[in-house]
Simulated assay, not measured.
Amino acid sequence: MAAQQNSASHGTGLFFNLYGKSMNTGATTAWGWGVSRLIDALESTTGHNIDPTRLGVSGCSRNGKGAFIVGALDQRIALTIPQESGSGGAACWRISDDEKTAGKNIQTAGEIVGENAWFGTPFNTYAKATSTLPLDHHMLAGLVYPRGLFVIENDIDWLGPVSTTACQEIGQTIYGALGVPGNFGFSLVGGHSHCAFPSAETTDLDTYITHFLINNGTGDIKQVQTSSAKVTLSTYYSWTVPTLS
């Protein structure tokens, strides 16, 4: 759908064959477009024994970035489960830059645009000036509202455990302000290899799968907020979270 071997991959893949190699769309958004076309096909055909109203999307690492964006862009996804997506996924660009300044070996926006073609070329302008961005990735989580979102992270420095924890806990305030705090769970359990799912998160994962994909999101669900990386949210914002309708 969209190649992502390196930063020179931009413009390669089926999405660009259709819309033109000069399109400035990033690979992850092109993946989202492809998933949406798959759902179109499921909705317009029969005999596949798949309920298109109970679809989940997941992936780890770069595929976690893609899964997060797919869930944000297509409202037909009932449950989004990005795993260890780090920068470009669960982490906030500004916080990652702060962590880098503090000496952490963490992936930042400036590094990510040189590594691969995951993001559209207009983002390059802001990659080394994230304070000028009019948004950050807590808003990416907000785009999934009110649907199910269960973010899984790790304590690997490159992924930015402080950045992912703070960013997603701030994202959870969006769900809370809109009255469905339990629909957004965040869990960071360390001590395991990248993309190796820890057994400690099985119960929480099963709860979200059962609630959104089996029970169709009916009833209440208790919010999950677990992380070995402790943060003080007032470090990152000073406003009072409103109650929205």
Rank of each mutant, 00 (worst) to 15 (best):
A3R: 11
A3L: 13
A3F: 04
Q4L: 14
Q4I: 10
Q5I: 13
Q5P: 04
A8C: 00
A8G: 04
S9P: 04
S9C: 08
H10E: 00
G13H: 07
G13L: 12
F15T: 09
F15K: 10
N17P: 00
N17Q: 15
G20E: 09
K21P: 03
K21N: 06
S22V: 11
T25I: 14
T25G: 01
G32C: 08
G34C: 11
R37W: 04
E43C: 09
T45K: 09
N49F: 10
D51P: 04
D51M: 01
P52R: 10
R54F: 00
L55Q: 07
S58P: 00
G64H: 08
K65S: 01
G66P: 02
G71L: 06
A72L: 02
D74W: 11
A78K: 11
A78L: 07
T80R: 05
P82N: 10
P82Q: 13
Q83N: 12
E84P: 02
S85K: 07
A91T: 02
W93I: 00
W93Y: 13
R94W: 11
D97V: 08
E99D: 14
K100V: 01
K100M: 01
K100C: 00
T101K: 15
A102R: 15
K104L: 07
K104N: 09
N105T: 13
N105F: 10
Q107E: 15
T108F: 06
N124H: 14
T125H: 03
P134L: 02
P134Y: 01
P134T: 07
L135A: 06
H137P: 00
H138A: 02
M139T: 01
M139A: 10
L140N: 06
A141R: 04
G142H: 06
Y145L: 06
P146V: 08
R147G: 00
L149W: 04
F150Y: 15
V151D: 13
I152C: 08
I152R: 05
I152H: 10
D155E: 12
D157L: 06
W158L: 13
L159Q: 12
G160F: 04
S163W: 03
S163T: 02
A166F: 06
E169I: 01
I170L: 14
A177D: 14
G185N: 06
G185M: 08
G190M: 05
G191Q: 10
H192G: 03
S193W: 04
S193K: 11
S193Q: 12
H194R: 13
C195Q: 03
C195V: 13
S199M: 03
A200F: 03
A200Q: 15
T203G: 10
T203K: 15
L205P: 03
L205Q: 03
L205Y: 11
T210K: 15
L213K: 05
N215F: 01
N215Y: 02
N216T: 11
N216Q: 15
G217V: 01
T218F: 07
G219L: 11
K222Y: 02
K222C: 00
K222M: 09
Q225V: 12
T226Y: 09
S227W: 07
S227F: 05
T232Q: 11
T232G: 02
L233K: 06
L233G: 02
T235Q: 14
T235Y: 03
T235L: 07
S238I: 00
W239I: 10
W239C: 03
T240Y: 00
V241T: 15
V241M: 13
V241Q: 10
